[in-house]
Amino acid sequence: MKKGLTAVKKQHFAAHINAAVDGLSAEQAADLLLTILHNDMRAIVERYIAHQRKDIVAAFEKWWDKYRVTLTEIEGRRDRAAQALQGFLKGLRYV
Rank of each mutant, 00 (worst) to 15 (best):
D55V: 07
F88T: 06
K3T: 09
A30H: 09
F13R: 15
K3S: 09
K10N: 06
N39H: 15
R93H: 07
A30F: 01
G76T: 07
T70F: 05
D65A: 11
A81P: 00
Y48M: 04
R47N: 11
A59M: 13
D65L: 15
D22F: 01
A43S: 13
V8S: 12
A20W: 01
A43K: 13
L32S: 04
L71K: 15
E75N: 09
Q86N: 08
I36A: 03
E46C: 02
R78K: 11
A7I: 07
I44K: 01
K54T: 04
L71D: 14
A82G: 01
V8I: 14
I44C: 01
Q86V: 04
R93N: 08
G87S: 13
H12D: 06
R53W: 03
N18V: 04
A84W: 04
D40G: 08
R68F: 07
E27I: 02
D55E: 14
H38C: 01
V57M: 10
L32M: 04
I49R: 03
L37A: 07
L34H: 05
H12P: 00
K66T: 12
Q11M: 08
E61P: 00
E46W: 03
G23Q: 02
A58V: 04
N18F: 03
H51C: 09
L85Q: 14
W63N: 11
V69A: 12
M41P: 01
K10R: 12
K66A: 11
E27S: 06
A20M: 05
L24Y: 00
L85R: 06
L24F: 00
G87C: 07
A50V: 04
Q11I: 12
H38Q: 12
K2I: 11
H16S: 13
A84I: 04
K90I: 03
K10W: 04
G4K: 13
A7L: 13
L33G: 10
F60T: 09
L85N: 01
K9Q: 14
H38F: 10
V8Q: 13
A30L: 09
L71F: 06
R93F: 04
G23S: 03
K62F: 09
D65Y: 10
R80E: 15
R68G: 12
R78V: 03
Q28H: 02
E27T: 02
K3F: 07
I17F: 05
F13Y: 08
A14N: 02
E27W: 00
W63A: 13
M1N: 12
Q11K: 11
G4R: 15
K9L: 14
V8H: 12
A26L: 06
R68I: 05
K54Q: 07
V69C: 05
T35W: 12
R77G: 06
R47M: 08
K3Q: 10
L89A: 10
V95L: 15
M1S: 12
F88I: 15
Y48R: 14
K90S: 09
T6Q: 14
A14M: 15
G87T: 10
I36D: 00
S25R: 00
K10P: 02
K3M: 05
G76P: 00
A50G: 00
L34M: 13
R80L: 15
A29N: 00
K66L: 10
N18K: 01
